[in-house]
Design a protein around this nucleic acid. Structure first.
Length: 412
RNA sequence: CGGGGUAUAGUGUAAUGGCUAGCACGAGUCCUUUGGGAGGAUUUAGUCUGGGUUCGAGUCCCAGUACCCCGACCA
């Protein structure tokens, strides 16, 4: 991508009313645009990052046999009345609207109900189970107060997965697989060391649910971290009983602020009861399907990565989710940098090429703000030494690399 | 939903109730410059909306709207 053609531009200042660090940097760097409180546009750079985050999640979900689908955000009142969650007294974040013919519908806050209703059509035998599906889908939640930049919006994409199993044992097996998938996801996204599997309240069908909490000042939750066991306890279930359950001592726990980037939840028969989702077991009896749900907020992950990894110069992206791997800067207007760009692109490397007729200082400052992992500077000086001056975003030391060396190092 | 605050150009800001709303960044044109947001010339663009007070309102009052913060909420 040539930077001269990128429609977003960097800004020297963040909007004054934007307080959260993630929104300030992402807006300044041209990754996102705020449309209104709690509603953000993802611009080309930001959307590339989002897609990469989603791809990591997608790979890990596929790896445990979960199948991707895509549901509608328009939801029927009748479906939600079946579970008793249509009432605004029960779920207070509904956006509701009407079709032209007057039919009342809701904009998806989540998808347990419609998917469970849908599965009635496809699950009839134990041979149909276990089954799990996920999607990246827009959720609408009419929060009374949006905050923390892109970390808590009124409209956001969520990866939500749902599992359907024939027995509690079968469910437990899948649940453990999902746990491991989530651990892999956050490790690959570069926040594994700060992300703790956190015990939280489980509802009526299981003692605990598991949240994945990333230690971060912009978070909204308080957790108690056991570094020794690499787990944490949410403040909402921080009791002596839970401490005993988990075999941890109060004095070994450290209180931290954290952001919930994912959660997994055993639903038992809560929804299969409501929708009478049953299957015929091998012995001919009808049994209820055991369900679970598994969420990750990719935008919240993006916000958390921004909060944790950026420095005073700007964003710092882990290579797996960086908008581009290499940020190529040409300090002179000539064909040499263009040729290097062409060769890197031909080798399949993702390059943002700053071909603008701008001063060196501006290009350096922008490269740091945008935060691609590697910066390659092409100038008369570097060419005399046989290539480009390459440095990592997190280090200041340069080294001269030939185009071939760059291709070797940065492809894949 | 309770409490508090703010609203001036694309962004950041200034302007005792009083002259043509000023400055910086950005953007456009031209010249110079060219390894850390350079300099000069020139242009562009603004008082959230609706009422009210006043000879006169960006400024005071009322209402609305939007945004931000604290708390509650986050199924």
């Amino acid at each position: 991508m040539k930077q001269s053609q990128l429609f977003t531009k960097t800004k020297k200042f963040a909007p004054q009313d934007e307080v959260s660090k993630n929104a300030q940097l992402l807006i300044r760097a041209g990754f996102v645009h705020k449309e209104m409180a709690g509603a953000y546009e993802f611009l080309p750079l930001g959307w590339r990052v989002m897609n990469k985050i989603m791809n990591v999640i997608r790979e890990e979900m596929n790896a445990i046999g979960c199948q991707e689908l895509f549901m509608t955000s328009l939801q029927r009142k009748e479906v939600w009345e079946a579970s008793g969650r249509w009432d605004d007294e029960v779920v207070d974040v509904w956006f509701k609207t009407r079709l032209k013919n007057g039919t009342e519908i809701g904009l998806a806050t989540t998808h347990e109900e419609p998917l469970t209703a849908l599965m009635k059509e496809y699950v009839s035998s134990y041979k149909d189970l276990p089954f799990s599906a996920y999607q990246f889908q827009t959720k609408f939640r009419n929060e009374v107060r949006a905050k923390s930049g892109i970390m808590r919006g009124r409209e956001f994409i969520m990866k939500d997965a749902y599992s359907f199993c024939a027995s509690q044992e079968e469910h437990d097996v899948f649940y453990e697989k999902a746990k491991q998938a989530y651990i892999n996801i956050f490790r690959r996204l570069g926040i594994g060391n700060q992300t703790f599997m956190t015990f939280a309240s489980g509802g009526s069908f299981s003692k605990y649910s598991h949240e994945f909490q990333t230690v971060c000042d912009a978070g909204e939750d308080i957790i108690y971290v056991s570094e020794e066991k690499n787990i944490a306890i949410n403040k909402e279930v921080y009791t002596d009983e839970v401490l005993a359950d988990l075999g941890v001592k109060k004095e070994d726990l450290i209180e931290k602020k954290a952001a919930e980037v994912g959660n997994i939840f055993s639903l038992g028969t809560k929804f299969s009861d409501a929708f009478d989702l049953t299957y015929d077991a091998s012995d001919g009896t009808k049994k209820k399907v055991i369900m679970g749900s598994y969420g990750v907020g990719p935008a919240r992950v993006m916000g958390v990565v921004t909060e944790l990894l950026s420095d005073d110069k700007g964003l710092v992206w882990p290579e797996v989710i960086a908008p581009f791997t290499v940020h190529l800067l040409s300090l002179e207007q000539n064909d040499d940098a263009q040729k290097i760009y062409d060769q890197l692109i031909a080798a399949g490397i993702e390059v943002l090429y700053d071909d603008r007729d701008a001063r060196a200082g501006e290009k350096f400052a922008d490269a740091e703000l945008i935060g691609c992992p590697y910066r390659a500077v092409v100038s008369r000086k570097s060419l005399e030494q046989g290539g480009a001056e390459v440095c990592c975003r997190t280090e200041s030391e340069n080294m001269i690399m030939t185009v071939d060396a760059m291709i070797e190092k940065y492809k894949n």
